[in-house]
């Protein structure tokens, strides 16, 4: 029996590249220093192909393929940035921007500029607005800034912490990240490990100190507040 080949050779934007079997198109492009934009992808969490910003044109096929989850194959001809691709990326960015507060998502802001996205493209669009959740001493949650990249839910679960305090709830446009029955975090399985904050690409999850400084608190006020919180914990 002949051995299976260990590598595949494909063409990305006219450049040929040979990569190990199992490499994604995104990884192969990175090996060539070809930039493909991503939003939901993160080295610490499982790629689920959600944001579709990384879609590329493979062999001129009917559908665009998400580079983060599509395996490189022998003989593939990949175009990472043609008219079809740009139209999809720009439209996704415009629709996202019409729905979510992206003011604290600098990487997405840069993408909006790079793709010439019109920030007013979808007037009168329903926005996902949620009240700020400030229910614990460590961090605040502002889901009006949540872009549903799933990373916090994944980090809380099988990708890191195995705490399973978070889930996705509802469906479609109205999907949101939630705890069980929307309970305050201290009443859930949350262990306050902070992994979710570490992987959040927007301002949806942030340490309380950062939030308070943003609100115009002085360093002294924040320090005093922290001291009170520490005392409360000791008593508890």
């Amino acid at each position: 029996m002949s051995e299976r080949p260990q590598t595949v050779t494909l063409t990305i934007d006219g450049q040929e590249v040979t990569v190990p079997v199992g490499t994604t198109i995104l990884e192969a492009a990175r090996a060539l220093d070809v930039h493909i934009p991503t939003i939901c992808e993160h080295e610490a969490t499982t790629s689920e192909g959600l944001c579709r910003i990384c879609v590329v044109d493979v062999n001129g096929g009917r559908l665009l393929q998400a580079a983060c989850v599509t395996e490189a194959r022998d003989g593939m001809v990949v175009d990472t940035r043609n008219e079809r691709v740009e139209r999809s990326r720009r439209t996704v960015l415009e629709m996202l921007n019409a729905s979510v507060d992206l003011s604290q998502a600098p990487e997405v802001q840069d993408m909006l500029d790079e793709y010439g996205a019109d920030r007013e493209r979808f007037p009168q669009a329903l926005r996902r607005e949620h009240a700020l959740l400030d229910d614990n001493p460590f961090y605040v949650r502002d889901y009006s800034q949540c872009i549903l990249c799933w990373r916090c839910v994944q980090a809380c679960g099988e990708d890191a912490q195995y705490a399973f305090a978070l889930t996705l709830s509802e469906r479609g446009f109205h999907t949101r990240v939630a705890t069980a029955f929307d309970a305050p975090l201290p009443e859930t399985a949350c262990v306050f490990c902070g992994q979710c904050i570490g992987v959040c690409p927007t301002g949806a999850l942030k340490p309380k100190i950062e939030f308070e400084l943003e609100q115009g608190w002085s360093v002294e006020q924040v320090r005093e507040h922290l001291g009170q919180a520490r005392k409360r914990r000791k008593r508890a």
């Binding site: 579709r52 669009a125 479609g172 446009f173």
Partner: peptide
């Protein structure tokens, strides 16, 4: 479609809602 989109990927999650808004007006 806006009611039945699962909300997993961005094009459908946002697109079904935006499509509905435009058709409603």
């Amino acid at each position: 479609f806006a009611h039945e989109s699962c909300g997993k990927c961005y094009p459908c999650q946002f697109g079904t809602q935006r499509q509905l808004e435009i058709l409603e007006r």
